[in-house]
Design a protein around this nucleic acid. Structure first.
Lengths: 153, 153
DNA sequence: TGATGGGTTGATATTTTATAACAATCAGGG
DNA sequence: CCCTGATTGTTATAAAATATCAACCCATCA
């Protein structure tokens, strides 16, 4: 799989720093465990399952139990640092943690890469559809499956 | 929970008939088991889990095993008679089985009722978003959570 | 200082959701 | 009737998530 390269270590580092900063502002606790789990979610740079995180987290130490991971993930999702991909039972780091939001995703069926869409227009259309159907909008998940540009070539 | 009444038996019956007819056209097999599972999915008229179907299916006879239900559901989804709601791990009858399509849903967080949206405009916007992000569209899930009209009152 | 209490993590067990693998059965064409 | 492929039955297990209670950490305040 050929893919556009970027400095991934840097990208992880900046996600961690952003999270740290936001937690300070919100006075929520970015504990070592939560930090480590966020780092592991980002490390794959693709959707990662809770149990994959668990395996990575357990390397070189006593195996941790599922609740440890799920609780950390719950926190990270709550803070908006991580999104859950429902159709994959997996998790990805959020590309825009400053603004809490539900994620809208494109998922490549060939390489499994995920692209988060932060398009306001799309969001607006979805909200509008909710209203037209008589619903008070709370949140939404949109997961589009398709083949990405790289994989098509 | 107050809700708009309709003749639900009739509504189940017509879903079964439609499925029957479509299977004849497609020359796929609408077996008694598949028919019964579709009937059970419709019977709740709300999202129903695979294991709830399993329980209902097992009433008054030897308990069936999970694969029996999952296989029937796979068939019904494949044929487009049933949709899976990813955010609930549950299933609902499709309101428009004639035309195979991915479902787009509104889910009420109060009463759990689900409304399927068959709006072409929404579908078009989603396809367009995929294209703009360089993806070849295959399919999509959209699940909007909110409060429905009845529950707001 | 050290008691208290909220939040976090650890640990054990279990529940919920889904699938793998193989055997038995059924339905339609030769 | 017999063969073949599809469907269903059966057993076992995997994968994903949660319930529950104990231990720990640490800030606050009497």
């Amino acid at each position: 799989m050929l893919k556009h390269k970027h400095n991934h270590d840097e990208c992880i580092e900046s996600a961690l720093e952003a999270a740290q900063k936001i937690c300070e502002e919100r006075e929520t606790r970015f504990t070592p465990l939560r930090r480590r789990v966020l780092e592991l979610v980002w490390s794959k740079h693709q959707p990662i399952t809770a149990y994959e995180v668990l395996d990575l987290l357990s390397e070189g130490q006593k195996r941790v139990a599922p609740p440890t991971v799920y609780r950390a993930l719950d926190f990270l999702i709550e803070e908006g640092f991580v999104h859950r991909i429902e159709s994959l039972n997996a998790f990805v780091g959020c590309s825009d943690p400053e603004h809490k939001h539900q994620g809208h995703f494109m998922i490549c069926t060939k390489c499994s890469n995920v692209t988060e869409m932060n398009e306001k227009s799309l969001h607006d259309v979805i909200k509008k559809a909710a209203k037209e159907n008589g619903y008070t909008y709370e949140n939404s998940i949109l997961e589009i499956a398709g083949v990405c540009e790289n994989c098509r070539n």
